[in-house]
């Protein structure tokens, strides 16, 4: 007998041992339905998201922004909406911000380039090489970060397309972190926010904010509490809150109903699983003549 006793399984035991594919199916349906028929649940803005927004607002018009996008397609679902929302903020108010993008994940820069084209070029008419640049990927992790403190042009002699950065107007006069007003990092892990804080913020005293995956966010909260990060976006929820703040409803906002309902179903499954476990344990103890 599956229950280890010489008697047939009870209904509760059967439910407890049900096919896990039923759980997958239930979660899939719960997530897909609100994507087709949105509920429009309200989205509040967390203090750390507000601080992220304020930090970007605080830099003077015409400043240079360093925008490392340290993620790849594995984290695209969470972080690409963030990249898009942040780019809207950079270019929306015609503040003449100069955005220098790069990536320390090999497959990151193509995603960044896609976001630049979709937002900066198509929606705000920004010009490559003048208003923004994509320096591409560079191997070396912390070494790249430290090396940029010495010289950004020497660390990245060419951009994403192989063009010499000396020929790009945006890079004229840019030497190192002293020319950067704010570091806006979108990070999926290593190398990412933690390393930028350790190698750049604490050494070169650069103002920094970070958007991270939900998984890595708890690791970065101490940096936000200590003031090393001026603001934080946490996963798709953080991106949706940011979209609310800048009044640009995007892909993150459209996924929030599904996210909320998905969490609700998982919470219900966790509660149901624990209740079943306790009831079954009590029944087994009773059958064996013991106490619960």
């Amino acid at each position: 007998m599956p229950n280890g006793l010489d008697k047939p399984e009870t209904t509760l035991e059967k439910i407890e041992r049900m096919d896990r594919r039923i759980v997958f199916l239930a979660i899939a349906i719960t997530i897909i339905l609100p994507l087709i028929w949105p509920l429009g649940l309200p989205i509040g803005v967390s203090p750390q998201v507000d601080d992220f927004h304020e930090a970007i607002e605080s830099i003077p018009d015409g400043s240079v922004v360093l925008f490392p996008n340290d993620y790849d397609p594995a984290s695209k679902a969470e972080l690409y909406p963030m990249t898009v929302a942040i780019l809207h903020h950079f270019f929306k108010e015609d503040r003449n911000l100069k955005v220098i993008g790069l990536g320390l994940f090999p497959a990151g820069p193509p995603l960044l380039q896609k976001a630049f084209e979709e937002v900066a070029v198509d929606q705000y008419g920004a010009e490559y090489g003048k208003d923004f640049v994509n320096l591409g990927y560079k191997e070396g992790r912390e070494i790249v970060m430290a090396s940029m403190g010495e010289s950004i042009p020497q660390t990245f002699p060419t951009d994403f397309f192989g063009t010499s950065i000396d020929s790009l107007p945006i890079m004229q006069g840019i030497k190192n972190y002293s020319d950067i007003a704010i570091l806006v990092n979108v990070s999926a892990g290593y190398p990412g926010t933690k390393e930028w804080v350790q190698q750049v913020v604490s050494v070169f005293d650069v103002l920094m904010v970070s958007g991270t995956t939900g998984v890595s966010a708890p690791e970065y909260y101490p940096y936000y509490n200590s003031g090393q990060l001026a603001g934080m976006l946490e996963g798709l929820k953080g991106a949706a809150e940011y979209e609310t703040l800048i009044e640009e409803q995007g892909i993150a906002t459209s996924g929030m109903d599904a996210q909320s309902l998905g969490h609700l179903v998982i919470i219900l499954f966790i509660i149901a699983g624990n209740v079943l476990f306790i009831l079954n344990k009590r029944n087994k103890n009773r059958d064996r003549g013991g106490r619960f």
Binding site: I27, A28, I31, I32, L35, I36, K76, A77, E78, T213, G214, V215, A217, P218, E234, G235, L236, K237, I251, S254, G255, A258, Q259, G262, H263, I266
Partner: peptide, 18 residues
């Protein structure tokens, strides 16, 4: 947070599928 991240991944693929 991990659960939230995993659901976000599925939402992305579900949006793509829709």
């Amino acid at each position: 947070n991990t659960v939230m991240a995993r659901i976000s991944l599925f939402i992305d693929r579900a949006q793509f599928g829709i």
